[in-house]
Computed example of a mutant assay.
Amino acid sequence: MQANFLIDLGDKAQVPIISFSATSPSLSSIRSPYFIRATQNDSSQVNAVTAIIQAFGWREVVLIYVDNEFGEGIIPFITDALEKVNARVPYRSAIPSMATDDQIVAELYKLMTMQTRVFIVHVLTSLGSRLFTKARQLGMMSEDYAWIITDGITNELNSMDPSDMASMLGVIGVKPYVPKTKELRKFMTRWQQNNPTPSPGINILGLWGYDSAIALAMSVEKAKLTNANFQMSKNSRSATDLERFGISKDGPELIQALSNTTFKGLAGNFQLLDGQLQSSPYQIVNLVGHGARPIGYWTKETGLVRELNSLKLLGILSLTPQK
């Protein structure tokens, strides 16, 4: 809802709206030339998830998602992708974002009565940590169950409480791959030095935000903009009158420059296509005793592989979750 509102304002004022956290696929239907999605669309990960399902030969999967726009947005894409690998979804579990522990437990008991033991979880970390804590207490984190989490949780693993991580042993997660470059290591070192309190570092949303700021600065230089020429409407009663604001004279030049800006950022290649960041490879991780262990990658060109730039397909044995 916030993104929709800001995109509408940007379109009316012809001012670029750059988001590094608005991942909902529904935003792709908004045809505003001034909206830049400098993040991965949630739908871009569904093929990586379904490739794991296909590798194990699972035929039934239960979808667990948060009951809001973030959770619902991915459902049509992931169900279509599962159908293509001959996997059906016998049940969808929609959990309220503010669900109580009793509500979570009640839903988990319902899942325990079903034959399907494979779950794809698409929620944010705050709900996900509670979900897995309760699942562990009910004995649902045993080898009889298989859990796959989308990047809504996987991107935040480094900042999760160790006790929450302990409830997720054996879980497989997918997340956009971030190359371990020299520039990234230097940036992380500066980040740690400038933060007085211990910090787990910046997750990929923060890196996309940093790259977005760099892209904007480069675009301003490329368009040779020195002053923000923004003319208020003569009918405007005040500078805060959102219904009567004017139009930016520099907006069209700036959005054109942004659309043509490419560089190697901290999060990987920054390149836009139709106003959206191009999809990167996905990393597959397995949560084991010492944290999240990388076990493979997924790319559009090669599917599942053990290592990037390797043509050797990822075998089922190497994907077997470890506790």
Score class of each variant (00 low, 15 high):
residue 4 N to L: 15
residue 6 L to C: 10
residue 11 D to W: 07
residue 15 V to E: 00
residue 16 P to Q: 09
residue 19 S to C: 10
residue 29 S to L: 08
residue 32 S to L: 09
residue 32 S to K: 01
residue 42 D to H: 09
residue 46 V to P: 09
residue 48 A to G: 08
residue 49 V to C: 08
residue 53 I to W: 08
residue 60 E to I: 00
residue 72 E to W: 14
residue 81 A to R: 01
residue 89 V to Y: 12
residue 90 P to V: 03
residue 90 P to K: 06
residue 90 P to E: 04
residue 95 I to S: 04
residue 96 P to R: 05
residue 97 S to D: 14
residue 101 D to F: 03
residue 119 F to W: 02
residue 125 T to C: 07
residue 137 Q to D: 13
residue 139 G to C: 10
residue 158 N to I: 00
residue 166 A to D: 13
residue 171 V to R: 01
residue 174 V to I: 09
residue 175 K to Q: 14
residue 187 F to R: 13
residue 193 Q to L: 12
residue 201 G to T: 11
residue 204 I to E: 01
residue 205 L to K: 05
residue 206 G to V: 07
residue 208 W to P: 06
residue 213 A to E: 08
residue 221 E to A: 15
residue 232 M to T: 07
residue 232 M to G: 09
residue 236 S to G: 12
residue 237 R to Y: 07
residue 242 L to F: 12
residue 246 G to F: 01
residue 248 S to W: 11
residue 261 T to E: 15
residue 264 K to G: 00
residue 270 F to R: 03
residue 270 F to K: 04
residue 274 D to G: 15
residue 277 L to F: 08
residue 279 S to T: 15
residue 280 S to D: 05
residue 289 G to H: 11
residue 290 H to P: 00
residue 293 R to S: 06
residue 299 T to V: 05
residue 306 R to N: 12
residue 307 E to Q: 06
residue 308 L to G: 13
residue 310 S to I: 05
residue 311 L to H: 13
residue 314 L to A: 02
residue 316 I to M: 10
residue 317 L to F: 14
residue 319 L to V: 01
